[in-house]
Each structure stands twice: as structure tokens, then as C-alpha cells.
């Protein structure tokens, strides 16, 4: 994390990204309403949202950095520290849980070399977390790998999935 923190922040909201934000802002009567979309744009561009990036968002939307941080920390999908190249979210809430979801999460930890939930693998490629309900309970176990929504994942299928993304 330290390497990322010390790197100087280069602005996100320039050129195409700024234009994209302006299109979004035109939909709302307040600039503040652009906050969630703006944070998504930062994450899309940089992979995570640093304090410096939050300060930039604050400036663009005429908010305070503290306000932006207060909102960013409320929502669990925003990464406030760097994560692996492949960010894996395994649903382990009750409906999936009774169908073996915890075994799926364990298999991801084992085969990616992450070791612990929330930790990033030594090669920087993987971070695995358990999430609460992904809203696809009829397809146990749903797993998000970045934006790819996988259904019916079983512990047995995990090595193949890890191999595919590692290639």
C-alpha cells in the first residue's frame, strides 16, 4: 500500500473522464448527486480510491474531502486501499451458505494463494472477500470476479476459474 500512497496523484477528471462526469452531472439538480458516479469513475480509472483522489472529487463537486470520505466509507464496493488485479467476491449469506458457499470461499483462498479473506496474494493478482447476498440465490454460489458475475460456482470449479483468470 505504501508504494501507492507515496506516488503523486495525477488528476482523474480530465479529458474524456471529465466529459463523462459532466454528462452525468447534467441529470441531477445538485452537484453532490454526482458523488457516487464520480467515485465509480475514480475506481474504474485507478482500481481504488485514494485520499488524494477523494480530495479531487471533493474539489470537482464542491464538497469537503471529509464529506467525500464519509460517503465513500459507507459503501462497501469502493476500494479505499489497493486490491489485487482480480477482486473476488463470494456470497456466503444464508441461501448460498446452506449450499456450500463457505467451501467456495475457502477454495478461492487456497488456489489464489491469498491465505486470508481481504488479504492480497503475494503476486498482487488476487484479493478474495466474502460478501453478503449478491442477489442470485437461485444460482449458488454466485461469485463476482471484478465485473464478471459467475453463477453456480462450486468448490470443485474454483481451480479452473483461477486458472482462466491467471492466464
Amino acid at each position: 500500500m505504501s508504494a501507492h500512497d507515496t506516488a503523486p496523484h495525477t488528476p482523474v477528471f480530465t479529458g474524456v473522464v471529465r466529459a463523462k462526469l459532466d454528462v452525468v452531472l447534467a441529470r441531477y439538480p445538485t452537484k453532490r448527486a454526482g458523488l457516487l458516479p464520480a467515485l465509480w469513475m475514480v475506481q474504474e480509472a485507478r482500481g481504488w480510491i485514494s485520499d488524494d483522489a477523494m480530495a479531487e472529487v471533493a474539489q470537482v463537486l464542491e464538497l469537503t474531502p471529509a464529506y467525500v470520505k464519509g460517503v465513500a466509507t459507507f459503501y462497501t464496493m469502493y476500494h479505499l486501499h489497493p486490491v489485487g488485479k482480480h477482486f473476488v467476491q463470494v456470497c456466503t449469506t444464508t441461501p448460498c451458505n446452506i449450499c456450500g458457499a463457505e467451501g467456495v470461499a475457502e477454495a478461492f483462498l487456497k488456489h489464489t494463494g491469498c491465505g486470508d479473506l481481504g488479504a492480497t496474494s503475494p503476486d498482487g493478482k488476487w484479493t478474495v472477500i466474502e460478501v453478503e447476498c449478491l442477489g442470485a440465490c437461485g444460482f449458488p454460489t454466485p461469485v463476482l470476479v471484478n465485473d464478471d458475475f459467475l453463477e453456480n460456482v462450486t468448490a470443485e470449479k474454483v481451480p479452473e476459474i483461477v486458472k482462466k483468470y491467471s492466464a
Binding site: R27, L36, P37, W40, Y75, T76, M77, Y78, V131, C133
Partner: peptide
């Protein structure tokens, strides 16, 4: 009639 999508960010 205008319609826009707004993306949540992980909060039940």
C-alpha cells in the same frame, strides 16, 4: 420522459 440509471455501491 427522461430515464437514468444510478449505480449503487454495496449497501443493502
Amino acid at each position: 420522459i427522461d430515464m437514468h440509471l444510478h449505480r449503487g455501491a454495496g449497501a443493502y
